[in-house]
């Protein structure tokens, strides 16, 4: 050993199992920033298309506002209910927590269904024109995120059951991760809604 490395530790110290601070949430945030950049790329593409490429004369690209507005409300509400579930997890009321998780998951699924309804009622298909393609790509990519999120919620819901579940207020990470992710997906939707439907 060298003069710089301290030498005093004895062999029984080898069993020390201190762990470093839990960095999983930090990692998740970094990942969500990356994920957000993917969306940012899509948004930038859509806005550029809109600014530069005029719609071809015979192309149909009209969006109704009713369903997406409903979708926005569904998702915003689900963010709120998720938060609510978290409160109950904190105060160890697993039953209530599970109830609110179920509601959250239900809202997620409702969003997906209503998105499907919109897809089937729209007058244009994936390859009809540039805007149609971008519309489906953007909402589809977001829908994929909602699907993943809903699955996560269901898993968490299963894991918070008492007494055998693994997610408790001692082990909150899976819950917090899913919640953060869900808020992120929600936030993306708001941007998406503004850009795709309102602009």
């Amino acid at each position: 050993m060298t003069s710089i490395a301290p030498k005093e530790q004895s062999s029984e110290k080898e069993v020390q199992t201190e762990e470093h601070e839990d960095l999983r949430l930090f990692g998740l945030i970094a990942f969500l920033i990356a994920d957000g950049m993917t969306f940012a790329g899509f948004f930038a593409a859509y806005l550029t298309f809109k600014a530069v490429n005029p719609l071809m004369p015979d192309a149909i690209y009209e969006l109704e506002l009713a369903l997406p507005t409903l979708n926005t409300i569904l998702l915003l509400a689900s963010s709120f209910t998720f938060h609510r579930a978290g409160k109950f997890l904190e105060s160890n009321k697993a039953k209530d927590c599970q109830k609110w998780l179920l509601i959250t998951g239900g809202l997620g699924v409702a969003f997906l269904i209503s998105q499907m309804v919109e897809y089937f009622t729209l007058p244009f298909g994936l390859t009809d024109n540039l805007f149609a393609s971008t519309f489906y790509a953007l909402t589809g990519f977001h829908g994929l995120h909602v699907t993943l999120g809903s699955i996560m919620i269901m898993i968490i819901w299963w894991q918070t059951r008492v007494p055998s579940g693994r997610v408790t207020n001692q082990n909150k990470f899976p819950f917090e991760a899913a919640e953060l992710y869900w808020h992120f997906v929600d936030g993306i939707w708001v941007v998406l809604f503004i850009i795709l439907y309102l602009l």
């Binding site: 920033i33 950049m37 593409a45 393609s133 990519f141």
Partner: peptide, 25 residues
Amino acid sequence: VVLSTPVLAGTLILLSFDIVAHTGF
């Protein structure tokens, strides 16, 4: 890496749609 690679990923996904699904991005 974290800020720029995802944009490439998104772009290549769009490109693959153009190839496979005949979209027109």
